[in-house]
Design a protein around this nucleic acid. Structure first.
Lengths: 193, 193
DNA sequence: CAAAAAAATTAAACTGGTTGAAGAAATTAT
DNA sequence: ATAATTTCTTCAACCAGTTTAATTTTTTTG
């Protein structure tokens, strides 16, 4: 199951005793999500933090014109949720759905707070997780500002070569911030040179 | 001094006892930075987390063409540093300099770790700080993807009305991701309608 | 496995934002 | 104060990426 994956993931940053592992497991709820089904819709409150043990999710918004813009992907070993909605208890602006059949481990806010209280080390773990996510986002902001579309695409396939194979091109375009038509032209141009 | 400002800031999220406050103060080093002088340059390692008690900083990169792109501003009450460089001890890709004469309170990595150990509540404080920063960045990424230049500018002046008054227009443009020339045209167009 | 639906390609016209250049206004330094 | 420097404005030519629409390829579904 995904139990080993999440443990391996956590023990990269903090060491856990047996009982602490058991407490953690007792607070996690497994869930499966069929391809194309939703984990969260705009207007709903995000009630859980979600660790992916199998499959692939995307978190995205839909603009006035009906276009989708992907703020993050998640695959095995990643946490995905709308933290703003989760922490503030307010309606989310985002959708999260499954690009493949997906398996999750979920933890609710009260359970997470219980976990922090009983094992303060988890506070440290989630701080480190957040640090990494923050830094990755900052990098993305900087690249969106300073790179051309072509540079951004090349960086994407270099950074996430697996993902590029796994998901439809139009999703890559929706993440990088240009149209599927333009991505197709770009790929053709790159393959010629 | 800035001592009250930082305390007020921290006590929004965690409560501190007198000795804990004293420990904190003993680990903070004040520093002043003249306008246009650098707190960090590309290639250097970011050694401190910096709390601004007065003034204004920007963190930015310079691209191949020599253009500056601002990843964040900071004013009174904000923390500014290159967290990636700070945590990993690797060379920074960013510059941080002062847009005004600025006063800071600095904490080094060893001192921050001492603080975490002796007062674990600070782990919580910085996790919450990071949560907020993460969510703000995610919002910015989403808006960069889904908004036009005009919408982004209008959102900026709505969200940071003080900052817009305080800094040169070209810095706003470097933050929003377009040229100063275009911003000037945009403002003219908006003032006509 | 066939039919339907979704994704990818191609091409041409188009547009939001850039570039370069030159002058005016504001800020900074002496 | 005055000169020097930086910032802001204006305009016109230009280009990176969009749009629309038609065709082909791939994936999904019954």
């Amino acid at each position: 199951m995904g139990d080993e994956l999440i443990l391996e993931n956590i023990e990269r940053y903090i060491h856990l005793e047996k009982e602490e592992v058991n407490l953690l497991y007792s607070l996690l709820t497994p869930r499966t999500l069929k391809k194309k089904s939703f984990l969260l819709r705009q207007g709903e409150i995000c009630k859980t933090e979600n660790f992916i043990t199998k499959g692939c999710l995307r978190m995205y918004s839909i603009d006035e014109g009906g276009f989708e813009h992907i703020v993050m992907f998640g695959v095995e070993g990643w946490w995905v949720s709308d933290l703003f909605s989760f922490f503030t208890g307010t309606a989310s602006e985002y959708y999260i759905d499954a690009l493949e059949d997906t398996e999750l481990l979920q933890i609710s806010k009260p359970d997470l707070e219980r976990l922090y209280e009983q094992v303060p080390k988890f506070e440290r773990f989630f701080r480190i997780l957040l640090q990494n996510a923050f830094v990755a986002q900052q990098r993305r902001i900087n690249q969106n500002l300073s790179f051309t579309a072509e540079q951004r695409y090349l960086d994407f396939i270099k950074k996430y070569p697996q993902l590029e194979q796994r998901i439809p091109q139009k999703q890559v375009a929706a993440y990088l911030g240009f149209t599927p038509v333009f991505l197709s032209m770009l790929r053709k141009k790159l393959s010629r040179q």
